Simulated scan of single mutants.
Amino acid sequence: MTTIETTVARRGVVFVRAAVAAQTVAIFFQALTAGLLLSTSYGELLHGVGARVMYGASMLYVLAAVLAWRPGGGSPRPVLYAGGFLALASVQVVLGIAHVPSVHVPLGVLMFGLSVLDLGRRRR
């Protein structure tokens, strides 16, 4: 592996780490705004904005994983994780719009846990 290939691979790994970190922070923000949703008048607005940011962060994770895999020569495994997470985020958005909290809330907790685990795996 040449120096240029090593640099590209390293940048890909850093981009994936940053995307997973952004996703994790966005999901944590969603947990905070879910509480505000129940107790304040502006909670719904914040939760709606946070949902868009979280979904964008999930798409960014997919992009980062693909860029780290194809041109960077990395493993395709993060693409599978990112794609699965984007699928969960899509289900989460649909459930939120449909007002199904009995599934929306536990799925949000699961997504936060999975994102934290993935972030921890990227830190090693």
Rank of each mutant, 00 (worst) to 15 (best):
A18Y: 01
Y61A: 09
V13H: 08
V116T: 12
V25S: 08
S58D: 05
A18H: 04
L80I: 09
L80H: 15
S115Q: 05
V16S: 14
A26S: 07
L38I: 11
G43K: 03
L86K: 01
T24G: 07
H47I: 04
A9L: 07
A31R: 14
F15M: 07
R122C: 01
R70C: 05
R10Q: 12
Q92M: 11
F29L: 15
L60Q: 07
L114Q: 04
Y55W: 13
A87G: 12
P78G: 08
L107Q: 00
L32E: 04
A64S: 03
Q23I: 11
L119S: 11
G83K: 13
V103P: 05
A82R: 06
V100L: 13
A64P: 07
T6S: 14
A22E: 06
A51H: 06
M1Y: 06
M1A: 11
L46K: 01
L114H: 14
V66Q: 04
V62F: 05
R77H: 07
H104G: 10
R70N: 07
G50Q: 04
T33V: 06
T24Y: 06
A21L: 13
P76R: 10
E44G: 14
V14N: 05
G50Y: 01
T7N: 10
A65Q: 01
S90M: 00
L60Y: 09
V25Y: 04
T2W: 03
A87E: 05
L107K: 02
Y81P: 00
G108K: 11
V103L: 15
F112Q: 10
G48L: 10
S102V: 02
H104A: 11
A87Q: 03
T2S: 14
Y55N: 04
G43I: 08
G113M: 02
I4K: 14
L67W: 13
A68P: 06
R52M: 14
G84Q: 05
A21C: 09
V13D: 09
A65Y: 01
F85I: 11
T40I: 02
V105N: 13
R124C: 00
T24L: 05
R70Y: 01
L46S: 01
G84A: 10
R52H: 15
L119M: 13
M54P: 00
S102N: 13
S90G: 10
M59D: 00
A89H: 02
V8H: 06
V8G: 09
E5A: 15
R123N: 07
H47D: 01
L37T: 14
A18S: 03
H104N: 08
G72L: 01
G108N: 09
Y42N: 15
A68K: 09
E5C: 05
G50F: 02
V91I: 13
R70W: 09
G35D: 15
F28Y: 12
V49L: 10
S90K: 08
F29W: 04
I27N: 12
L32R: 11
S39W: 05
Q92K: 06
V100F: 14
G74T: 04
V100A: 11
L119G: 13
A65L: 07
V100H: 15
F85T: 08
A87F: 14
L95T: 10
L45V: 11
A31G: 15
D118A: 15
Q30T: 02
M54N: 04
A9K: 02
A98M: 01
